[in-house]
Amino acid sequence: MNRYAALLRGIAPSNPNMSNEKLRGVFEQLGFEKVASVLASGNIVFQSADTDVSDLEDRIQQALNAELGIAGGTIIRSDEELQALLASDPFPGLTHGRGTYLIATFLKDRKKVARKLPDQPDPLARVVGYDKPCSAYLAVIDNSEPGKTPDFMAWLEKTHGKNITTRTWLTVQRVVKKMNQ
């Protein structure tokens, strides 16, 4: 069995149709095993014999839309991919906090490869790398100044469209931990 994490876009935990219980129910109806949620923001881990990730993403998204009216987006990464990402230690010496908000932004379309890192699109964001196997930008966001919001996410959407999703580094760590319990 293959272990996967589904990183769902556009989940609002306050919406009753987007509760972890309902999200897990859709995955269980699709026949996946060891379905579990991580936090309340659209992180579902599961096991499946399927190996076609693109097909899994499409099946899950269609079911979420049909069952719960969730039109967001589904991005899947395997346990091996996420473990390798963690092992790469892209944020050496940094800890997640107010001035060093560590994030990973996953692109759904793995064919869109970052040939080079972008010029720093935002003074409050520092892109530290691009992980090709996970198709993810890795960045440090400075949100230490009240009232100053980084424009990094807007830049990502403008550059790569809406088929992306961002998770904090702490969330990525929690997802991998849950996949291996």
Rank of each mutant, 00 (worst) to 15 (best):
F91D: 04
A66R: 14
R24F: 04
T105P: 06
I75R: 07
P133Q: 04
D79Y: 15
I44Y: 05
M179K: 01
F32G: 04
Y137P: 00
F32S: 03
T51V: 12
L30F: 09
G72D: 01
N20P: 06
A84D: 12
R167H: 05
Q173D: 08
L102S: 10
D89H: 06
A87Q: 09
G129K: 05
D151S: 14
G69P: 05
P121Y: 04
D151I: 10
P90E: 03
T95D: 07
S37R: 02
Y137V: 11
N65I: 10
R126T: 15
A66K: 14
F91E: 07
G31M: 08
I141G: 00
I76G: 01
T159P: 03
L82A: 12
K112S: 10
P146I: 08
L102V: 07
L82D: 07
R174Y: 08
L68Y: 04
C134N: 11
D151V: 13
Q120P: 08
Q173E: 12
L107M: 04
Q47R: 13
S19N: 00
V140E: 13
V176E: 10
Q120N: 12
D151G: 13
K158T: 11
R167L: 06
S135C: 12
P90M: 01
E81G: 01
E145G: 06
M1P: 07
K162R: 15
